[in-house]
Design a protein around this nucleic acid. Structure first.
Lengths: 134, 134
DNA sequence: TTTTTATGTAAGATTTCTTAACATCCCTTG
DNA sequence: CAAGGGATGTTAAGAAATCTTACATAAAAA
C-alpha cells in the first residue's frame, strides 16, 4: 500500500543509478527518451530516480542482455503493467513466465541491494550483482 | 546478513537527505563536523549518505528536539554503538530505554518511508532489545 | 557580561548534470 | 555492396548543486 509510495519516491541522482545498474548515463537517458522509464525531476531539472525506476532499469538491462531491442522491451514492460486483459496465446504465456522469473531474480537482487533492515555482514560488491543476470 | 551492506551503501546526495530529514544542509554538515555522522564521499568530494546515515540523522533530530545538545547526543549515539560494556546505573538504563523507544519510533517511520520489499512487514527486532533485557 | 553553541548566509571554486550534436558500430534490407 | 536505422560513445557549453571558508547572530552557558 504505502509500499508503492516508498518505491516511487524520487531519491537517486543519475550517478548513483549508474553504479546501481551498471548502465551508462547515455543509456539511461536514451531509455528515458524512448519512454521506458520516467524518472522525476528536481526543481533544477535533474533526474531523480525511485526504487521502482532502478528496478525497471534493471529489468531493461536484463532484457537488453537477452538481445531484445527497445521496441521489444517496451512491449514486455507494457504487458507487465496491464497483465489482466484478454486471454493470451502460448507464446505470450511463455514470455510472461520468463519475465516473471526475471522479475523474481530482480527481486532477489532488490532484496540484496536495497531492502532495509539490520545486522549481519556479508560482502557483496557491485560487479557481483551481474551474477543474477545474463 | 547483507543488510548492513545495503544500509551502509552510499546513495543519497545532501539535497535528498535534507528533504528526508527536514534538516538544513548547514545542520547536516555541522553534525558531520562534530563527528555525529560520517557520510561517504564521491570521487568529486560530494557527500553521499547511506540509509544508516539518514537513520542516524533522524535520531539526532529527534534528540535535538528533545532539547539535548550535541555533546549529549554524541554520548547517546556512542552508547548505542557499544552497548555491551560496564554495568549501568539506573539513570543510564532509563536513558537507554527512552532511546530505544525513540529508536523504534524511528524504525517505524523508516519502514514507512524507506524500506524496500513488497510483501510482509518486518517489525521489532528482538535481538537488539535482548541486549538490555534477559 | 562574556563566551560558546548551533545555525544562517554569502562568496567563490569545483563537481555533476543537462541538452545537443556528431561519431561509430552493427544490423537489416534493398 | 550501399544505405538507413538503432543503440551507444564522446564532447562541448552552460546550468545546477555542492563544497569549503568566513562572517553574522540569537540563545544558552559560564
Amino acid at each position: 500500500m504505502s509500499d508503492e509510495i516508498r518505491r516511487s519516491m524520487p531519491l537517486f541522482p543519475i550517478s548513483i543509478v549508474k553504479s546501481l545498474t551498471d548502465l551508462s548515463a547515455r543509456q539511461i537517458r536514451y531509455y528515458e527518451e524512448h519512454d521506458l522509464v520516467h524518472p522525476a525531476r528536481s526543481e533544477g531539472n535533474r533526474r531523480l530516480f525511485s526504487f521502482n525506476d532502478v528496478d525497471r532499469l534493471l529489468e531493461i538491462k536484463a532484457l537488453i542482455e537477452k538481445g531484445i531491442n527497445l521496441a521489444g522491451i517496451k512491449q514486455v514492460l507494457s504487458m507487465q503493467e496491464a497483465p489482466e486483459n484478454e486471454p493470451m496465446n502460448q507464446e505470450q504465456v511463455e514470455e510472461i513466465h520468463n519475465d516473471l522469473s526475471e522479475k523474481e531474480l530482480r527481486r532477489m537482487l532488490q532484496q540484496e541491494l536495497l531492502t532495509a533492515g539490520r545486522h549481519g555482514k556479508s560482502s557483496l560488491r557491485q560487479g557481483e550483482l551481474s551474477r543474477f543476470f545474463h
